[in-house]
């Protein structure tokens, strides 16, 4: 059965967090922390910005959402289920042998997945191509790319940012999930990228830093994108907390990988109001 898309991003995000916790408890294979840091941004995109449904997924004028941090596939699938794009029951197929719902998102196998991801530093580059192709063919709609802050270690991200600024791809919006934790430690300890907003600005972008868990702030930042006039692309550095929404997961490195036990699931669901 397909879910009806609800309009409240807070409730949308809450339901996604609940499903992700349940699924990851079952699969024992998780990137729950990075999913929870990004889900509020995805909730605003799907409830208020993208206007995607099962009927317009092939429309060249549609908005395109590229999940570049493809490891939060569980969260992506739950988002698609609550957006009414995939059947809700399909969430039971995640990581099941012989099914298509893998640990990283794969185009063509699941409706609403615009790009196969899994290796970092690809989404912003492919996004440049899609945004450029939209522009020269006169198609409407923006290309939104969600990437991790650790992902910004990749040189290819900066190749594409230089390119997007040079070609004034204002129909491209890059969103960085700035949760300050990557796979092996704090961003600042691994490779200190410093002031990301300033870096993107110095590469020729319009950049803004917001609270990535404030729905109104997310929405107004996303609405800054103006696709009609060629100008500098928009980069939203969304300050977030890894594991946001469940106290014992918040800002803890191990929840990049860990999956909740039955006991932890119960506590998590309580905190999430289930």
């Amino acid at each position: 059965m397909y879910k009806e898309l609800i309009s409240d991003p807070a409730e949308f995000a809450r339901r996604v967090r609940v499903d992700v916790a349940r699924i990851n408890c079952r699969t024992r294979d998780s990137h729950i922390g990075g999913g929870y840091s990004a889900v509020d941004i995805m909730a605003v995109l799907y409830t208020r910005i993208l206007k995607l449904n099962r009927q317009n997924l092939q429309d060249p004028n549609r908005n395109i959402f590229i999940l570049s941090k493809g490891h939060i596939a569980t969260t992506m699938f739950a988002v698609l289920a609550h957006a009414g794009i995939i059947p809700y029951e399909d969430l039971d197929k995640h990581l099941v042998n012989g099914e298509n719902y893998a640990g990283h998102t794969r185009r063509y196998t699941v409706p609403g997945i615009e790009m196969s991801a899994g290796s970092l530093g690809h989404g912003s580059c492919v996004g440049c191509g899609m945004a450029y192709a939209k522009r020269i063919q006169g198609y409407k709609g923006n290309v939104y790319v969600l990437m991790g802050d650790g992902e910004c270690n990749e040189g290819s991200v900066w190749e594409s940012v230089m390119f997007a600024a040079r070609f004034k791809l204002s129909n491209l919006v890059l969103i960085v999930d700035r949760n300050h934790l990557q796979a092996y430690g704090r961003d600042e300890q691994v490779l200190d990228m410093g002031d990301l907003e300033a870096k993107f600005r110095s590469f020729g972008c319009d950049a803004v830093t917001i609270n990535g868990h404030d729905y109104e702030a997310i929405q107004s930042a996303l609405e800054r994108a103006v696709s009609d006039i060629p100008r500098e692309p928009l980069v939203i550095v969304a300050d977030t907390i890894k594991g946001r929404g469940v106290s014992f997961m918040e800002d803890r490195l191990e929840w990049h990988f860990k999956s909740p036990s039955e006991e932890q699931l119960k506590l998590a669901l309580e905190e999430l109001g289930e």
């Binding site: 580059c125 492919v126 191509g129 020269i136 198609y139």
Partner: peptide
């Protein structure tokens, strides 16, 4: 530009949108 990674992926994005 001299940026082979973006060069290839940019081409992929163009093709994905019908070019």
């Amino acid at each position: 530009g001299i940026a082979e990674q973006n060069f290839v992926s940019f081409g992929a994005g163009l093709a994905a949108m019908g070019m």
